Simulated scan of single mutants.
Amino acid sequence: MIANQDESRATLMAREAAEAPERCAAQIARNANLMREAGQRLRALAPPFVATLARGSSDQAAAFAKVLLETRAGMPTLSHAPSIGSLYKATSQRFKGVPLIAISQSGRSPDLIAAAADAQRQGALVVAIVNDEASPLAQMADICIPIHAGPETSVAATKSFIGTLVALAHLVAEWSEDAALLAALASVGDVLEAAVAADWTGAVPLLKDAGNMLVLGRGLTLPIAGEAALKFKETSSLHAEAFSIAEVAHGPMTLIGEGDPVLALGPIDAARTGLRERLEDFRARGAQVIAAGHPDDVVAATLALPGQWDVHPVLGAIAQIQSFYGVANALSLARGRNPDAPPHLAKVTRTL
């Protein structure tokens, strides 16, 4: 039995996700001076590259930062594995003068703290993006950027993930002096409110009995697809894997046959190239294609999801994960699970 809307909205996950628009609008205002100063400092630093440090959902946010930094600030960006610093104590001396963007909702994961400290020892500039300003990671950072999401009780991160994406977009906009993105961020609350209202739960019947699926994205939406796949695993015990729309034909496409579900989160910038043809390929295989994206790209979909296609591409990508959390919550309930307390998971993951 599929959960009704009242049941879906009763969960912590649903309530906390719905707080994101207001929290993000407030974040932009509260962080304005901090971000301006951080952008100036990073431009003056003129580093050769940038590194990110994160795990779980935060690592998907780090992948979002990579796309932003490389396309808008011209900064090559690598993912620094926490174990290099926490276990091996082998952080390269080439990190001297390099920003290390450490992302953690709690700021309390021991491996991230140890890895950030090892990089700082090598001369890295630690930029912490956290929800908990009193956390050890926040206290040790050279630049601390709070996301102001407020307490998040559900194990499944929602508003903190969205808030992190918004903070990263704000930081990169200031760093790269991207006037168009800065102007767009002023409307983030309205864009996310519209995304909350966009009903994606029509996808629940197509996913309720699924055992495996693919989630596709490209460019700005590939990290969104990664977060969606992670949430399917966490909250619905549904084995979902994220792939690039450009890469899925290099092998993974063979996994999909008659009746299998595919969720495509289409970008609305240059990365939408080839999306329509790829979705047509999946439909020709008999796949159940659920797609968000520009209307011209999703005409072949079994179910085209509502969205906003006349907004800045960065906000469009963030809006997709806001809308997705509604269907993830509803699907979890429809599959008889509790999205607030997935089995074997805790809010703070204490990896060593």
Rank of each mutant, 00 (worst) to 15 (best):
A138P: 01
T158E: 06
A149W: 02
C144N: 06
T158F: 03
V166I: 14
D190C: 12
D190T: 15
V126Y: 04
A119N: 08
V127N: 02
L165S: 01
A194F: 05
A195L: 05
L137A: 01
S154R: 04
L181Y: 07
S109D: 09
L185G: 13
A124W: 11
I145W: 00
S160Q: 06
D111R: 09
E177F: 06
P110A: 12
E177H: 11
I162D: 03
D190Y: 12
A184P: 13
I162R: 04
R108L: 10
G123P: 15
A203Y: 09
A117P: 02
G107R: 10
A203K: 06
A203H: 03
G150N: 12
H148D: 13
K159L: 07
D111E: 14
P146G: 07
L112C: 11
L100E: 01
I143G: 07
T153P: 00
H170A: 13
A183E: 15
S109W: 05
Q105R: 06
L165Y: 08
D199N: 13
A173I: 11
A184T: 10
T164Y: 03
T164S: 11
S176K: 09
A173H: 08
S160V: 13
E177Y: 09
T164R: 03
G202K: 14
G150Y: 14
L182A: 14
V172I: 12
A180P: 09
A203G: 14
Q122F: 05
A184W: 08
L137F: 12
A116D: 08
A119M: 14
A197P: 00
I103P: 11
L165E: 03
S104H: 08
L125W: 10
A114Y: 06
V130T: 14
P151I: 10
I103A: 07
L192V: 05
D111Q: 05
S187H: 15
V191A: 13
I162F: 03
H170W: 14
T201Y: 05
I147L: 02
A186G: 15
L182H: 08
A116V: 03
S187L: 09
L165Q: 10
C144W: 00
A141M: 00
A102P: 08
S135A: 11
A114W: 01
S160N: 07
